[in-house]
Design a protein around this nucleic acid. Sequence first.
DNA 1: CCCCGAGTTTGCGCCAGCGCAAATTCTCCC
DNA 2: GGGAGAATTTGCGCTGGCGCAAACTCGGGG
Lengths: 233, 233
Amino acid sequence: MAALDRSLISRLPLFQGMAPEEQSEILRGARSSRYAKDSSIFEQDTEAHSFYVLIAGHIRVVRTTPDGQQVIARYISEGEIFGVAAALGRTTYPASAVAAVDCVVLAWPNALWPELARRFPTFGSTTYRTVGNRLQETQTRVVEMSTEQVEQRVAHALLRLANQTGRNTESGIEIDFPISRQDIAEMTGTTLHTVSRLLSKWEESGIIVSGRQKVTVKDAHRLVVLSENRTKG
Amino acid sequence: MAALDRSLISRLPLFQGMAPEEQSEILRGARSSRYAKDSSIFEQDTEAHSFYVLIAGHIRVVRTTPDGQQVIARYISEGEIFGVAAALGRTTYPASAVAAVDCVVLAWPNALWPELARRFPTFGSTTYRTVGNRLQETQTRVVEMSTEQVEQRVAHALLRLANQTGRNTESGIEIDFPISRQDIAEMTGTTLHTVSRLLSKWEESGIIVSGRQKVTVKDAHRLVVLSENRTKG
DNA sequence: CCCCGAGTTTGCGCCAGCGCAAATTCTCCC
DNA sequence: GGGAGAATTTGCGCTGGCGCAAACTCGGGG
């Protein structure tokens, strides 16, 4: 903890509106760790012992089916809380969390959750607001998978990534962590082949530029048009 | 409230492990209402003013897309809490709730949530456990839609309905509220035609019997086999 | 600097499941 | 008891997107 930049941490949305001494109190219970790229912070279906805040990096939350297929539930960005099994009364993690790049996280033992939530209501309600957002996002994804074509879903996914984790560069909005065609396929319920074909097409028409594990959105507006392109119904 | 059977209410899982006087205290803030079949308890995207517990009946939670397509998010059974926007810091409902049959519900003004959650931690944590379950179920649904064929998804949906709201009869497990082919289609991301074809096939092989807005599972085991039948991957 | 392997692209054939349309059967209301 | 509308069934043709396979390309490690 001592090594971490306190001012950086106190700027996190999770701690907004809390007095500095309250923040310190909460942070006292945490321990920080680093995770190398591709290492896992926790594994699906294992005993949940901690909840986390991502201080630096990007994390992929993945669910694996019994026959080994993977589905990416979401990406976690800096400042977000994750692995909140404790807050929802679960004893195991429903998915695995894997570092998409080298990461720094804070971890609290689950045993501390009840006390923290009681003593710092802001902390609790911010967490539950996050849970609410995720529930709604997940439901939105169900709706998309039920009603949209693959092209629209991939367009939506890219737009979401660009908004949540996009970095503005001279050439457009670049997704600032390595993401493969396979990853995008696992986010949208399709195959890497189909994603590759779509990205090729979009690159040809100047909507994006892409490379190995890299996508830059050049023309978000046209992507929005694609994502709304009704074909069913 | 006075008219309602107190013993029935105190038996709800939501109130388990609470002293009778605590239950009374909580119930004091509630008001009960009836909703006729097909009437809506609340509407998507409207200001959230209350949270609810279903005392009797079945409720369909539906999300409608901008172009009018509907997706059934879930069914609510007796005893479940729903419309918990307040607990998740939301100001509007993300979906509509429609009575699948005539219903009786208890409603609390959202303003009461913080106080209730603070004074009755059991009540709060039970609610959040429910939210956790729903988040996980919703994610499971995303995984299913990503990795399974339509036949498996419909089989899963029927099994889930049979488990959650099934009524044992001499001829099998009957889903005890009216459910159309269209409803099943909206739960599984397919069309009523495809659902109809599947149910016809299953009826022919004796796995189910079905009629107008009615499905009875006769051979759950074979349905499980179908739901696990790997074809992709 | 070159090689290896992971990531990507692209072609080709096929089929699950959708859209459309029409016929049929309940069920409830008059 | 009969009619009307809603729900369901079924046929048919088509296609989006998947599976398979092979070629290619990039980037990092030796």
